[in-house]
Design a protein around this nucleic acid. Structure first.
Lengths: 341, 341
DNA sequence: AATAAAAATGCAATCGATTGCGCATTTTGC
DNA sequence: GCAAAATGCGCAATCGATTGCATTTTTATT
């Protein structure tokens, strides 16, 4: 008679006329089982094509061996790099990784996070959506003491491990660099200010202006969600000013690129007439022409570190949280190198 | 007294002095429970912050509500697009998605697939690793009748749903296009031939040559794994031929780019001296200079379709498999547009 | 050989949700 | 007014693996 369902430890036990407990212990290399019995059991398990049912095991152990990762959009180089790094570390440590994308929508994020909770993930790694403004769905994790790690876009009011880049220093360096290149009126295309990342980049920008005794001009800062289209309209708006900028620090590479293309089509030369700097070091920034100066964010590393942090939280009871600030690196390329042209 | 663990249906039942069965049925909107009782139960469940334990439910139902996705590398635009599309559809249909990357290694792929099996995924969507040459780990899925869908890199000998692009037509069109542009000696940088995708691209290349009565020259075809570095060394090798090519059909955009940069550094003009075409329409191909002609592969769509197929397999018993061939689109850009320069 | 000590294995409950079957109560029909 | 049908709910088993405690078997000691 053929059993059409998967063999279980009970099937193995029946086969050998022993108890399921023994089989379980043998397969888990419990020292209480003799070597001889273990070998016999493993042989039969192999022969029957036995594969443990992780669901059952997880239920019993109250542990899913799974780490949840939530990103705004999988299909973005920075985020997929983070995922890639996290997956790498997690897998090696014996964890599975479930991934969802919020599409930068608060509702979907809440939905996802609750679903992951129901699935009893052992920990959650998340970079919050642009749109998210309340954080009850995440505070629950802290309240229930379920490991939680923020990366890149963290929530200040929730105390837990965080891994971010030094956005302030990044913003500062970009601006200082533009000043050093002789640009005088430096505009900033900023992202939504409820996200610390964009907030800090702007703060860095402001600080650099202040340090160099440059009067801050409010009309030179535009805040939006940094899509390609919005990059264009923002630049359009900037160029219509009585006194347009001669450099633009764009909040990301996407807008830097769209801005650049827009300006080029208008016959404006980059970097001679206008200098451009982006943020994130997307792969294309290096290969476009002119290549785009930008700030490198080590996504893969960040993912690795995030996974390490969450695993530490999962596997140790201690809860002393750290905020790791990865250094930013300014990559100077053609789009802002006026001096050398 | 504070319970530090999660509330269960038993806790709710105790609270209301009813049975757990009733609670379970009420929460699942079973018609056998009266409306009044249902409401009472739902109110208490809410008040206690009850969240169903998916693990327990899944164990009982022998269903994980999870779809596994295995890709060579998450951190690659085409694959992350596929994931993004699949995640989108799956999530809307109430499925979770677990993702792993094989890093194009056979061993890791086998490991991952077995782990997913142990986790009892309801179905598996996979694009096999370059290195993978045996397929027992996947045949098991078919044997046990667990839904399986291949995308992009499919295994011919396993009968199941597949969704691929028309690589043959793609290879053909690229080659024909180069011929139409007046290129005479067209080289091909091909990927490992055990993958149908690369095999078919080459077949398309050969067929185009044949149709145009161009003698096939073996020295013009180089097979490797299409990394950036290998692109360089392949081109180097080609340029050292007594009679070097005047056009190169690269198996992917990565090698197209690295080849282009190498040639440019040598003072060779593109597309005037040598025409270049890539494959996959990576984001950078559009924005580099010169922009790279390539073949568009609709990754996001492919992911959506793959998810639809797997869900169909999961939710219906029928097993009539289809192979969906998505059309390829040739995108002509600067790197191969000799006529218009 | 008898007994203590150590080693190997089994019993049965548990994790939390689901469900077939059955019992009790209420409603319906004539 | 009473049998029949319908309604509402509970009991207990189940999914497969794990584990504290109990029991059996083996080994060591005198």
């Amino acid at each position: 008679m053929i059993k059409n369902s998967e063999p279980t430890i009970h099937d193995i036990a029946r086969e050998l006329n022993i108890s399921a407990s023994t089989v379980s212990r043998a397969l888990n290399d419990n020292p209480r089982i003799s070597l001889k019995t273990k070998e016999k059991i493993k042989a039969v398990a192999d022969a029957m094509g036995y594969r443990p049912n992780t669901l059952a095991s997880n239920l019993r152990n109250k542990k899913s061996n799974t780490i949840g990762i939530v990103v705004p959009l999988i299909n973005r180089h920075f985020f997929s790099s983070v995922i890639s790094g996290a997956e790498d570390v997690a897998f090696k440590a014996g964890y599975n990784v479930v991934i969802s994308q919020s599409n930068d929508l608060a509702d979907k994020e809440i939905n996802i996070v609750q679903s992951m909770f129901s699935n009893r993930v052992d920990g959650l790694i998340i970079s919050i959506a642009m749109q998210t403004k309340t954080f009850d769905h995440l505070k629950i994790f802290r309240k229930k003491n379920i490991p939680l790690v923020f990366f890149d876009r963290a929530v200040p009011e929730i105390e837990t491990d965080k891994i971010v880049v030094d956005d302030f220093a990044g913003g500062f360096r970009v601006t200082q660099h533009l000043i050093d290149q002789g640009y005088k009126r430096i505009a900033h295309l900023a992202g939504t200010q409820n996200l610390m990342t964009y907030f800090d980049r702007k703060k860095g920008y402001l600080e650099a202006l202040r340090k160099n005794n440059i009067q801050f001009d409010e009309s030179l800062v535009i805040i939006n969600t940094l899509t390609s289209d919005e990059g264009v309209s923002a630049v359009q708006q900037l160029m219509e000013l009585k006194s347009p900028p001669d450099a633009i620090f764009c909040g990301n590479d996407t807008t830097a690129l769209s801005a650049m293309i827009f300006l080029r089509d208008k016959g404006i030369r980059i970097p001679q007439d206008i200098g451009i700097v982006g943020f994130s070091n997307e792969p294309f920034s290096k290969v476009v022409s002119p290549s785009i100066s930008t700030i490198a964010q080590p996504g893969f590393q960040m993912g690795q570190k995030a996974a390490e942090l969450i695993i530490r939280q999962i596997e140790t009871k201690e809860r002393t949280f750290q905020t790791i600030v990865l250094p930013t690196e300014l990559i100077v390329r053609e789009s802002s190198s006026r001096r050398s042209f």
